[in-house]
């Protein structure tokens, strides 16, 4: 806390904090309010006497109804969920094993291998999608969810591996040594002791991976073409912006509904997740 006179607390703490919170939350508020405003209010010119951008007097569910009735939004939601879940599961599985190996097993070149994996994460997706598109075409996976399920791990695995490496390093080595003296093999020690202890780390890696694949745009844009195969971010931008016409109501409704699953995942695991990020394990 800030010490001293009350004005200091206001100037250095409350006012900056309020500004910060306002700046962070305003886009979400805008999204929310636009979702429920009728078109008649949305398209008022700014100098009209009835112009009131920050509030609505006639809330409506029209945009949401439109989204589900007139577009493939529910299919996009399902696609996104399916792709994000499976690619997260694959990446977590590989990331946990690789992170454990790189942080615990003393094999030659473990250090440089770890760095190598990190470097692959640094290759921008905007470059990587070109060779990947070729591979996807060769395997005839274009326009199927598998094109994304298999390509998302290319950036999710390095990410999970690094996060888990860091987390495993914070787990005291003695826990595992003790388990091995207690009669567990290396694999049993990992399954019964290390992984349960690393749950907060695994959860935060999972949440990050899920969010990254939920929001992923460029691969989804390139590898999927038919409207019914699209994910939420691509579907929304390609089907709700027609030419230069922005369907603001449905756009914002889709953005709102699209962020709810992620928000739910976050809030569900928030305690573990914070422990995973800040997290050391105490024996």
């Amino acid at each position: 806390m800030i010490e001293g006179a009350a004005w200091r607390r206001w100037v250095f703490f409350y006012i900056p904090l309020t500004l910060f919170v306002f700046v962070l939350l305003f886009p979400f508020y805008w999204m929310l309010i636009t979702t429920f405003r009728p078109d008649g209010e949305l398209y008022q010119p700014w100098n009209s006497p009835r112009y009131q951008p920050f509030w609505t007097s006639n809330p409506t569910l029209d945009h949401i109804k439109y989204l589900f009735a007139e577009t493939l939004f529910s299919a996009w939601l399902w696609n996104t969920m399916f792709i994000a879940t499976i690619s997260t599961a694959i990446s977590l599985f590989c990331g946990v094993l690789a992170g454990y190996a790189l942080s615990r097993l003393n094999f030659p070149f473990a250090g440089s291998l770890g760095t190598g994996i990190f470097v692959t994460y640094l290759v921008p997706q905007t470059l990587l999608f070109i060779p990947l598109a070729d591979i996807i075409r060769n395997f005839k996976l274009g326009d199927t969810p598998w094109s994304l399920v298999l390509t998302y791990p290319t950036f999710l695995i390095p990410f999970c591996t690094w996060l888990m490496m860091g987390y495993f390093k914070s787990v005291p080595k003695e826990l595992e040594e003790c388990a091995r003296i207690d009669g567990a093999s290396r694999l049993q020690a990992m399954l019964y002791i290390i992984i349960p202890v690393a749950v907060p780390g695994i959860l935060s890696a999972g949440i990050f991976a899920f969010t990254l694949s939920w929001n992923e745009f460029i691969y989804a844009l390139v590898f999927l073409s038919s409207p019914e195969q699209k994910t939420v971010p691509v579907g929304v931008t390609s089907e709700l912006i027609r030419g230069d016409v922005f369907f603001w109501g449905p756009l914002m409704a889709a953005a709102l509904l699209g962020s709810i699953p992620v928000a739910m995942v976050y809030s569900f695991f928030v305690e573990h997740y914070v422990a995973g990020l800040t997290g050391s394990v105490k024996g």
């Binding site: 003695e174 826990l175 388990a179 567990a184 394990v281």
Partner: peptide
């Protein structure tokens, strides 16, 4: 011989209790 087959028990400085 791996530690598990040596029939020993060890007590560590930081106790190394399984926290979960």
């Amino acid at each position: 011989l791996p530690p598990m087959d040596r029939d020993i028990a060890m007590v560590f400085q930081n106790y190394a209790l399984y926290p979960h």
